[in-house]
Computed example of a mutant assay.
Amino acid sequence: MIRRVIALFALTALVFPASANQFRFTGTAKSNGSTVLYQEVHRVDGHCAEGVFEPQSHSVNYRKGPGDNPFATKQLVYEDSALRPAVDFRQPDFNELMKISYPDAERLSIEWQTPSGKVETFTVSFDERLVVDAGFDHLVRANWEKVTRGESVEFRFLGPTRGEHYGFVLEPTSNDQLNSDVVLRIRPTGLVLRFLVDPIVLGYNNDGALTEYLGLTNIRENANANFTAHIRYEVEQYPDCELTP
């Protein structure tokens, strides 16, 4: 009898495997002329801590269309902070590779293989204000109460191809191109950078999920420039706990 119970339990585990706590969503990037440029397929694995989802790893496959093989990939690992993931980004069509790692608590390393084949390396010191790559998404959620009541948040954002970080502000805004419950923008605070870098506009739903992104992307249009796109996201699976505190 005991063996039968054990066998039944094992069979059930095979048929209904225990799944990690996942957050899955897909983005469709379009140009200003509404031409589909590519799709992003996101999978975030994490766990619930005091009722709030905390990411541990995040994979992104970039595809020209549904079912196509990825033309670029990104792997993010969140170890010490949701704001500063380790990054492994690959875009083989342009022979581009970007890696960001953290050799110690207050210093990060960047290795960037450029489309020309040259390898650039940087070592950057930072403090708790720094946000790296998709860490901006978690910055929004960590400050959800502030931004939804109209307050702004200042931070530093890493420019990995420059080997430097810069002052930015996250703030509520409005934009006729977005149809989201909460609309925010990220803009540089430095006077010179304001003339060089356009703000990024973000849309979120009331659950704290990213629904829209309008601005410069990390996907190359050619060897010298990246796409500027309007990306609309659809959630396939929410985690078992809340996205925001």
Rank of each mutant, 00 (worst) to 15 (best):
S109C: 08
C241H: 06
P199F: 05
H47I: 11
D198F: 07
E128P: 05
L184E: 04
D181F: 02
F23T: 02
D45M: 08
A7L: 14
P239T: 03
K99V: 12
I6D: 02
P172Y: 03
F122W: 11
F89N: 04
N21D: 09
R232T: 15
T161R: 15
K118V: 09
S116C: 02
L210H: 05
S34L: 12
A18I: 14
T173C: 08
R90G: 00
D176M: 01
D133M: 04
Q177H: 10
L243K: 11
L158P: 01
D240F: 03
F9H: 03
N179G: 13
A225G: 07
N218Y: 01
I219Q: 00
E40D: 11
D207K: 08
E111L: 01
P92M: 00
N218M: 06
E236R: 15
R63T: 12
V201R: 09
E212L: 03
E79S: 10
N95K: 04
R149Q: 15
L97V: 05
A82T: 13
T121I: 02
P199T: 01
A229R: 13
V119T: 06
E54W: 06
Q113A: 02
T28M: 09
D207E: 14
S19P: 04
A20P: 00
F89R: 10
A72G: 01
N61D: 13
A142C: 08
V147R: 05
H165T: 06
L158E: 04
G203H: 09
F89P: 01
I2K: 12
V197N: 10
V147D: 05
S19H: 14
A223K: 09
R84W: 07
S31H: 06
V119F: 00
A7P: 04
R24K: 15
T161A: 13
E96L: 02
S19L: 11
A229N: 14
L76S: 10
K64F: 03
Q113G: 00
G190K: 08
G167P: 10
E40H: 05
D104A: 11
I231S: 09
S59Q: 06
V183D: 05
N226A: 05
V169K: 03
P160V: 07
M1H: 06
E40C: 06
R43M: 07
F94T: 00
A13Y: 03
F94W: 09
G135E: 11
T73R: 05
G190M: 07
E54T: 08
L216S: 10
Q91S: 00
E212K: 07
Y102Q: 08
L184T: 08
F122I: 06
I110R: 05
G46H: 02
V235Q: 07
W144T: 10
V169N: 00
A72M: 03
E128R: 14
G167V: 08
T244G: 02
